[in-house]
Simulated scan of single mutants.
Amino acid sequence: MSPGVAPGTRPVVVGVDGSRSALDAVRWAAVEAARRETELLVMTVVPTGDRLVARPVLGDRLRQELLARGRRALDEAATAAESAAPGLPVSADLLTGSPVGVLADQTHRAQLLVLGSRGLGGLAGLVVGSVSVALSARASCPVVVVRGADGAERATGPVVVGVDGTPNSEAAIAFGYAAAASRGVPLVALHTWTDVEYAPNLAPLLEWDAIAEEERVVLAERLAGWGEKYRDVPVRRVVGRDGAAAALVRLSADAQLVVVGSRGRGNLTGLVLGSVSHAVLHHSHCPVAVVRPDTAAQER
């Protein structure tokens, strides 16, 4: 049966640049769009403002070549989406400008933005460390970066969510529960604390078992309301000392999705992502969803 589209839903948007990583992102995004009963919008951005394009001798010829590459990338993406989710409604946009700025503007009408982790680089590369990281901090909706050799195809394993014990992680928890419920898999909720929260000279005097119990209570309190809403989602709580990023990366080896929060700001200069989110984006073995506190309402 062909995937349906629920009335009034925002599309899932995927950015492509003609790379193999982008096609992985398209396949992941197509399956996710079908799961959410919405359409897939494939976008590529041709940077016509690049200095090379602006040169009189090269400008027009190079611009036409970039536009032709963009159209080929969209055609390949549409084929990959149809293969991953037959019958899914797919539309395509070829846009011009700065990839970060253009895609960030487009996220106002999306419920999810999906990107590959290793783009072509250069003029149009959507690569972790530049476009993907910047958009994770600036997008108006949650961003998924498809990582891992089999990240676009993995259909087993739990959803993992990082919980920092503050209200900032509430949006990530909500996203994680919804993702686990829609996939019919367990949720692994990870919460860690670090010794730097305590004065070094007091460390020998502290009762670490008692602190660990307090942190388990913190995690339970953060999950309580969501557990009531998603009663059918089995939850495994993991509490540890130190190394949130390393723990999330370790758990990602057997997961199908890792969800992290972000302290990013959505304005033009706001590129604050957070050390944990940044590290997980670079080293996770599976796709990573970055959910900023102010993007939760944009998800559907």
Rank of each mutant, 00 (worst) to 15 (best):
N201H: 15
L202G: 10
P204E: 10
L205R: 13
E207R: 11
W208D: 04
W208V: 03
D209V: 01
A212T: 11
E213R: 01
E213P: 00
E213V: 00
E214S: 09
E215I: 00
V217I: 08
V217M: 05
V218G: 01
V218E: 05
V218L: 09
V218S: 03
L219Y: 12
E221M: 01
E221Q: 14
E221A: 12
R222C: 14
L223V: 08
L223K: 07
A224M: 09
G225E: 13
G225F: 08
G227V: 13
G227M: 14
K229C: 08
K229R: 15
R231W: 09
R231D: 12
D232G: 05
V233S: 07
P234N: 10
V235M: 14
R237I: 01
V239F: 04
V239L: 03
V239I: 02
R241W: 06
G243C: 11
A244E: 11
A244F: 05
A245G: 13
A246V: 13
A246H: 10
A247Y: 01
A247P: 03
L248C: 10
V249D: 08
V249R: 09
R250Y: 07
L251G: 12
S252K: 08
S252R: 07
S252A: 10
S252V: 10
S252D: 09
A253L: 08
D254N: 11
A255H: 07
L257C: 10
V258I: 14
V260Y: 00
G261H: 01
G261E: 01
G261A: 03
G261S: 03
S262E: 05
R263V: 14
R265A: 09
G266Y: 06
N267F: 12
N267K: 08
L268Q: 06
T269N: 06
G270Q: 03
G270D: 04
G270H: 09
G270P: 03
V272C: 02
L273Q: 02
G274M: 07
G274V: 05
S275I: 10
S275Q: 12
S275N: 13
V276G: 01
H278F: 07
V280C: 06
V280M: 03
H282Y: 10
H282V: 10
H282W: 09
H283R: 15
H283V: 12
S284R: 01
H285Y: 11
H285V: 01
V291D: 06
P293I: 10
P293L: 07
P293K: 07
